[in-house]
């Protein structure tokens, strides 16, 4: 088990009386790729600012390798940041932007030169040394920002939605590239995104946040397969979230019908949230036993058809490789493993 490189203990931050981070506890292990995932405005950037030292939390502790670093200013932290809108130095060219941190550290000129050249090659910008950063495309600025941070070989790299401005194809390429760099350079990455797919493909650990509260911490597979509550289930991929009643252990009522499931420990006759993934549902002829509904729409999505099926208290989203005819009545079949039971969140 690797040791923790960063620990956040009971971090609270408020702006204008509003809680932005609410009692955040998070341990990040050395060389881990951790992603903070959540909707816009949930406090992801604020959390990075706390780690980077730009914001002092109202309460709680930030530890670096088990030592409190609350009093350490940003320029003395062994952390570098790729800022949300790059924040490149507009008065410097590409080379000087990347060399900035090394020059501040007063490295010898030839060493700076070597490292910058290496970095430029790594981010595919060789030959752009003299270019003004104002005349670069979004993707190129992005890569300069990454190079400017990485060249300092920090222990931890903070990346705030670094691929947000890129088109889909370049984003996919950069995702793979970043993941490769992280593994090769053995740096801890704390990566912020609101794109759940990006989080799932790149991370060792995903931290799902909402309204300044951590909802769930886990591996991408855990987060996807075992969402802890309706918010996580809804945010990670498309889901059917239904009101259910836990009759007793391993027995749940949904839409007036009772199903066997694998969850237990919710008590008897407890209202719960039930999540069923669209791809876990199979369309069958109506048989009276399963939930039945009318097909309202069918959309071709490339790999599968997306169907909206209206049952009596819920519109179900179903993914299937076979299309049903609109207005036909169908049955919805799913197994005990496909039913995910969650406690209702307050509010």
């Amino acid at each position: 088990m690797k040791k923790n490189i960063i620990s956040l203990k009971n971090i609270c931050v408020s702006f204008d009386g509003e809680r932005i981070l609410d009692n955040i506890n998070l341990d990040i292990r050395d060389k881990e790729f951790v992603t903070l995932l959540g909707p816009s405005g949930c406090g992801k950037t604020t959390m990075l600012r706390v780690i980077g030292g730009f914001l002092t939390p109202d309460s709680g502790a930030v530890q670096f390798e088990e030592r409190d670093i609350k009093a350490v200013p940003p320029h003395k932290r062994n952390v570098n940041t790729v800022f949300q809108r790059y924040a490149l130095f507009p008065h410097l060219n590409v080379y000087d932007n990347i060399a900035f941190g090394l020059k501040v550290k007063k490295l010898p000129e030839n060493e700076i030169n070597r490292k910058v050249k290496e970095m430029l090659a790594l981010v595919n910008l060789s030959g752009f040394e003299k270019r003004s950063v104002n005349r670069l495309s979004g993707g190129q600025q992005q890569r300069v920002a990454i190079a400017r941070a990485l060249v300092n070989e920090p222990k931890i790299l903070l990346l705030d939605e670094p691929l947000g401005a890129l088109d889909l194809k370049l984003r996919k390429e950069m995702q793979i590239e970043l993941k490769r760099m992280q593994q090769r350079l053995e740096i801890t990455f704390i990566y912020v995104t609101h794109d759940q797919e990006e989080a799932l493909t790149m991370s060792d650990t995903v931290v799902v946040m909402n309204n300044g509260v951590i909802q769930q911490i886990g591996s991408p597979v855990d987060i996807y397969n075992e969402p802890k509550n309706a918010f996580v289930a809804d945010f990670i991929g498309e889901s059917n979230i239904l009101d259910g009643l836990m009759v007793r252990d391993r027995l749940v009522t949904i839409s007036g019908k009772t199903f066997v499931c694998v969850d237990y420990g919710f008590g008897e006759n407890t209202p719960v949230d039930v999540v069923i993934r669209p791809e876990d549902i199979t369309i069958i002829p109506p048989d009276g036993e399963h939930i039945a509904g009318v097909v309202k729409s069918v959309t071709f999505k490339g790999v599968h058809y997306e169907m909206l099926i209206e049952a009596y208290d819920h519109d179900w989203l179903v993914h299937s490789t076979k299309a049903s005819a609109v207005d036909r009545t169908v049955g919805l079949s799913f197994g005990p493993d496909d039913i995910h039971i969650m406690r209702k969140t307050e509010g």
Partner: peptide, 21 residues
């Protein structure tokens, strides 16, 4: 402001942020 924070992030104290950025 984020450009100034970037300078701090890259190791500048207050005086150097002013001088260099």
């Amino acid at each position: 402001r984020s450009v100034l924070e970037a300078a701090q992030d890259l190791g500048c104290n207050r005086g150097r942020v002013i001088a260099k950025v």
